[in-house]
Design a protein around this nucleic acid. Sequence first.
DNA 1: GTGGTCTAGACCACA
DNA 2: GTGGTCTAGACCACC
Lengths: 130, 130, 130, 130
Amino acid sequence: MILNVDLTSDTPIYQQLRDRIVEAIAEGVLTEGSLLPATRALAADFGINFHTVNKAYDLLRQQGLIRLNRGTGAVVTLTVADPPFRADWTARARTLLAEAAAKGLPPEEVLATCRSMLDSFGANQPKDTP
Amino acid sequence: MILNVDLTSDTPIYQQLRDRIVEAIAEGVLTEGSLLPATRALAADFGINFHTVNKAYDLLRQQGLIRLNRGTGAVVTLTVADPPFRADWTARARTLLAEAAAKGLPPEEVLATCRSMLDSFGANQPKDTP
Amino acid sequence: MILNVDLTSDTPIYQQLRDRIVEAIAEGVLTEGSLLPATRALAADFGINFHTVNKAYDLLRQQGLIRLNRGTGAVVTLTVADPPFRADWTARARTLLAEAAAKGLPPEEVLATCRSMLDSFGANQPKDTP
Amino acid sequence: MILNVDLTSDTPIYQQLRDRIVEAIAEGVLTEGSLLPATRALAADFGINFHTVNKAYDLLRQQGLIRLNRGTGAVVTLTVADPPFRADWTARARTLLAEAAAKGLPPEEVLATCRSMLDSFGANQPKDTP
DNA sequence: GTGGTCTAGACCACA
DNA sequence: GTGGTCTAGACCACC
């Protein structure tokens, strides 16, 4: 698993870490039960402090994407999207799409971009019928 | 124009203001040349500090959506989406879509949601051929 | 006896096990002298490590609710609530009730909920006068 | 406002801090809009690190009890109890009451304790009709 | 070994 | 001045 974080970006490192891991889950690189790198090991990889990784993992835990177990490490444990999440997500999506529309991006192009991303996520998903 | 901001939300008010104005532009409620409310008037409407409104307007200016003219107020002045913006937007969209996918939302449903939002934006858009 | 534990919950499994057994005792499903399932058997039922069950049993032992006898297994042996326990319990109850009050739950509703729970516990209790 | 935390307890300091503040809100000592002590100031009062206070405040923020604003400090902002909270709270209350019942505390006594606590919370609440 | 907590001190963004 | 982030290093509880 390759996580691309930019230490010079103005978005917090722990936020970037969270985003990259969420994307890895969406891509199927990480699946239910996958073991995440140990906080201190991941921190060493990026040359950052383990507290920063800790914060990213804690965010993911709050959002129901991973479980943190002392001794055994962090594992991916997906939970269903509850209505509050859906509402929040939709609101954020609305703002993001509005931004594209306001900047004149053609709706068809935006939609095509979204579709191709979603397709790329689905491509690596574990199939029920192999 | 009605801007819906939640003073109790955990997202900063200036961010909400920016988001609502971006959405208003996407919806066609605000178009090229539209005059935005004066910062102090808008602040009074919501009972917030006018610096907060200023900050929202400044964000919109940085993103090339409005121009701030001393004395004449803020007017909507759309600029084309440059490559850096597209790259940034795509990255943010990728993360948002990944979040939906990671939480198990069906791709078709996500795509349908996006399409209906984009359609709703397009409905009120001014036509190029009057 | 049916113990309902959620392996995906964020509360530790041993904690859930302890809670369910405490509730079973309160409900009268388990009474003084009742024999608890063997740790390895219970662990096998849930597909968890028997150390986890051990830990739950040890917690119950520390709290004076069961006795662990090598060979004969764990039996329910109730002990009276001593002042330290009462003080600790009251403090925890205070925090829990405060949480409800802080979130605006009406006191009458909270009290009614507590009463109905206590009533449900008392329903199956063994009588002192057989 | 007097917050009683035990630095030698085995429950984390940030957890105790959170509990004490929740209780202060329930008691009406802190009400909607109240300004909490600055993280560093509170840390200095207790002789603990400001990060520990930070964590307590962040917990309260996650639970919708306070808002954290850079520059202006932390203010109490109550939000309504949503169904997931109620379900979670009820489950925790059930376990706590079961613990009392299992230890032989008489239901009437438990209920009386709860009632007196809830009454003490209500006593200092701001009245609509002064 | 794992994650969890706490401390200490730095710098930043914001108001 | 506030909270937010990051670093560095310590010790603990658990597996």
